[in-house]
Write a protein that binds this DNA or RNA. Structure first.
Lengths: 334, 334
DNA sequence: CGGACTGATTGGATCGATCGAATGCTGGTC
DNA sequence: GACCAGCATTCGATCGATCCAATCAGTCCG
């Protein structure tokens, strides 16, 4: 391992001068700088971030705590966060919690022990618990994408989940649907549900929330099972709102399995706008969140001058999985 | 920040004794240990991994360099690697290359500067270039999942890609298909193609490799476009091999768009067995790689006693996207 | 009862960088 | 020629741990 001392020796200066060169401090004379830089190049010296971190307290590492990599929503977000942080010179320490609070707690402590410069924390259903620990550890953080309002959770960068639900509900309402089921990950997506209910209430429309348990509700398979149950129990349903796209993909799958054609026999709408949504069969109508904006804002909030709360607005993306209700076709089958 | 010194002071011992307690060295007397442990608890002390890393040279961090998070194959792998490494106390520094060799090079240098204990490197099409740098930096590594044979690349943990291609080809051959297209990410998946060709040659079957460019070939969309082109140009094709599942999902999508029913009008087979493959419409027949085994072996090879090369065998998973060729139905449409 | 031996704890150097203060050098001024 | 300013560089301490050698008790034994 070649150290700053080796470089100093070779360039005939002290390590402090080398340090000054590395950190671009304007105190070094031009020819000294040149000599040092040559020594660095010749030896292939790369300054230790460990030692620097220890001395300065800055490690140029950001901890990223996400619920799972199985949902493209998070991987798309991580990808953007990584790119954004990279331009600022930061690296990423990745932790997935899989909804296990103890594991998450261990990971948070480890991140602290690594002296990370900041933490980007996603809501996995146990945020409030995690936030307590994060505060106790004194980690700078930003809470990202969370739906439930946590007291004193700021800084928070998130989406307007209620409005997303509203847009989904309003879309189906405007298409004339009156028998609508909601399949969701609860209680996490309670706010999205609330928004949808608000939109539907404006058309005095009945709603059948098919609540599915927290374990399965994260996966496409969970959406499939819930949808299959709802659609057989309530054949009069002509439209389904899924509180996130992965679930919606499962609904699509269930519809196909039950011989319900989408969108002719059944309209399906999701929330998030993950990439596979656009590539589904049929392409999924959904409410899009500006994932790239979220990533930007999260980084800005964590590293920049302190802000409080940012909330980003979703917008409707109409594709092929929703259409006008045609003469109550669903009811005929009942 | 509470340090080992604070603990020592409070427990009335020196930091060395505290260190001995932390590291479970059996030299500490029981009551001293108890006193130290209590001080640790009272102060909420967590040993700095930076300082320890600097002193010992071990950071308990593993670098993970992957091509992209947009392919579930990698996220499934990362998830397993993370779990496996976590039980050994290791954390993950994540880097995605997105096929950009310069970026990858910068990331590798940064990982080195972080004194990571090891590197798990995936093939993104530029491995040989990266390997040179990794060796030059002196990073302990394991090359993971790579297909192309790199001279002196060991240690390598990978799959038998040739056999995977063979299994895919043999399956379609046995189902009676004679007009088969291959859609793939080349040259990366040349070996898979070779295996498929070997199987088909055994039935003296024609093959139409539809090579698609390296940029698009990574995504489902790329598979869609390539399949659309091939299927319209060559309507006599009754079966498609995609060299990885994401591509195969795109083929499914293209078939639907062109009104070719799968598997009746067209058989489709992929390779990898990612989770969305099982949830596709229809469920995708594919050649499965033991992702969990790969993760295990990669960790074992990197951290355990040194081995050379591990190659894991794939197996065929028959689902709903392949069937017997029925009287050349595809040709009728031509 | 002194010397060797084991067991527990301590002291000081070290890892590789940064930080702040001190030093040396140059040139201008009176 | 002495004095001071200002620039470039050096010196020594520090970050928070570990490592190795040294010290200090006790015990055991001849």
């Amino acid at each position: 391992m070649v150290t700053i001392k080796d470089v100093a020796l070779r360039a005939g200066v002290t390590k402090q001068t080398v340090s000054n060169v590395i950190n671009q401090r304007p105190v070094v004379k031009a020819d000294t700088r040149a000599r040092v830089e040559q020594a660095i190049a010749e030896l292939g010296y790369t300054p230790s971030l460990l030692a620097r971190g220890l001395a300065t307290g800055r490690t140029m590492m950001i901890g990223l705590v996400v619920p799972t990599l199985a949902n493209p929503f998070y991987t798309e977000l991580i990808t953007r966060l990584e790119r954004g942080l990279e331009t600022d010179g930061y690296g990423i320490a990745l932790c997935t919690t899989d909804g296990d609070p103890d594991r998450a707690a261990r990971q948070l402590v480890t991140l602290k022990r690594r002296y990370i410069d900041g933490l980007i924390l996603f809501d996995d259903g146990n945020v409030s618990r995690h936030l307590d620990l994060v505060r106790q550890l004194g980690l700078p953080f930003v809470l990202c994408g969370s739906e439930t309002a946590i007291p004193d959770a700021s800084p928070v960068v998130t989406f307007d989940h209620g409005h997303a639900g509203y847009l989904a509900g309003a879309h189906l309402r405007d298409l004339g649907h009156r028998e609508i089921a909601v399949i969701g990950e609860f209680p996490a997506h309670e706010v999205r549900l609330g928004g949808a209910q608000r939109a539907l209430a404006e058309g005095s429309i009945a709603i059948r929330p098919a609540r599915i348990g927290p374990t399965q509700a994260k996966s496409q398979h969970g959406g499939f099972e819930a949808a299959a149950r709802v659609l057989t129990d309530h054949p009069e349903v002509t439209a389904v709102i899924a509180t996130h796209d992965l679930l919606a993909l499962g609904v699509l799958q269930a519809a196909a399995a039950l011989g319900r054609r989408v969108p002719d026999d059944l309209s399906v709408i999701g929330i998030d706008d993950i990439i596979p949504a656009a590539e589904a069969q049929p392409a999924l109508t959904t409410v899009a969140f500006p994932i790239d904006r979220l990533a930007e804002e999260a980084i800005g909030t964590l590293l920049g001058p302190s802000r409080e709360t940012v909330s980003l607005s979703p917008h409707l993306v109409v594709r092929a999985s929703t259409s006008y209700r045609v003469g109550g076709r669903g009811i005929v089958g009942a």
